[in-house]
């Protein structure tokens, strides 16, 4: 009981912190069930009048299911590709010796310093040149590789014991074979962390899909939901209902993958 007594101030602080974090989500749920007038009242109304029709309106006003499908395809494509390409590159940077390796690696890292907006026009022109504007490949392609993912996986490979690799090499394994059968399975925690981070980033990505795709049918949810926002007026309850439906899958994923996500963020020191 003594330790429990000493812990209560800590628990109190944590409970307040948790409430502050959960509050926006709770408010989102409440807003999604309000009428337009209730949602814009000052002082705020707490008890909604349970307008379930807001959810139906989202399905009426946007091709929600089609866009959900696009988001899933886009996110899956980008994530699988990043896991493969980033870990391949990362393994080379971490373990293979070749001339200019460190120079190339520093050059790659410098990409992390460049703000994403600068890539917008060149990437757009490349996708345009390929004739992929307004298509799913156009959405996926620029997100298939990332300097950040490569950096993260390289750091991870560096921590793995060199002896395992040496043993495999003595047994006559080819570098690609070592990578695939020995190192990659060992890097599972790193891959999971990168995977979760990529899924989160891709699910929420708004700017690129809006720039490269124009038809509602080819847009992912993030871009599609923005159609519910008007220039001077927005029906907030409907927008919140749509956002809630769009974020539900990712919240479920977070709950399942919590441990890996926290590990990943702790490991890289960023998110």
């Amino acid at each position: 009981m003594r330790s429990g007594g000493r812990l209560w101030p800590v628990h109190l602080v944590l409970a307040v912190g948790a409430a502050a974090m959960v509050m926006p989500f709770f408010w989102q749920v409440l807003t999604s069930l309000k009428t337009f007038t209730e949602a814009t009242r000052t002082p705020p109304v707490w008890i909604p009048s349970f307008e379930w029709a807001n959810f139906a309106k989202v399905l009426d006003e946007t091709p929600f299911l089609q866009q959900l499908g696009n988001t899933v395809v886009m996110t899956t494509g980008r994530t699988l590709a990043q896991l493969l390409f980033c870990s391949l590159a990362a393994y080379a940077f971490a373990r293979l010796r070749f001339p200019g390796r460190d120079v190339i690696f520093v050059a790659l890292l410098s990409v992390l310093m460049v703000p994403g907006q600068l890539f917008l026009i060149p990437q757009y022109q490349i996708i345009q040149g390929l004739g992929w504007l307004n298509t799913l490949p156009g959405l996926i392609a620029p997100g298939m590789f990332s300097a950040f993912g490569t950096f993260m996986m390289r750091q991870f490979f560096m921590t793995l014991p060199a002896e395992v690799e040496e043993a495999a090499r003595l047994d006559g394994a080819h570098p690609l074979r070592i990578f695939w059968s020995v190192m990659l399975p060992l890097a599972r925690p790193g891959l999971l962390a990168l995977g979760v981070l990529t899924v989160l980033w891709s699910w929420n990505d708004l700017m690129w899909p809006l720039i490269v795709n124009t038809d509602p049918e080819s847009m992912p949810l993030s871009a599609g939901l923005s159609a519910l926002q008007g220039e001077h007026m927005t029906d907030y309850p409907v927008l919140m209902a749509g956002s809630l439906m769009a974020s539900a899958p990712i919240i479920v994923l977070f709950i399942i993958m919590q441990k890996q996500l926290i590990q990943g963020i702790a490991f890289t020191g960023s998110k």
Binding site: L120, I121, Y124, Q125, Q128, L206, M207, L210, I211, T214, D215, P216, S226, A227, Q229, E231
Partner: peptide, 18 residues
């Protein structure tokens, strides 16, 4: 072709550059 007001001009500029 709908683009929300906030991103409309970025998109227009990008597309005009292309």
């Amino acid at each position: 072709q709908f683009t929300p007001n906030k991103e409309y001009w970025t998109k227009l500029q990008t597309a005009a550059a292309g």
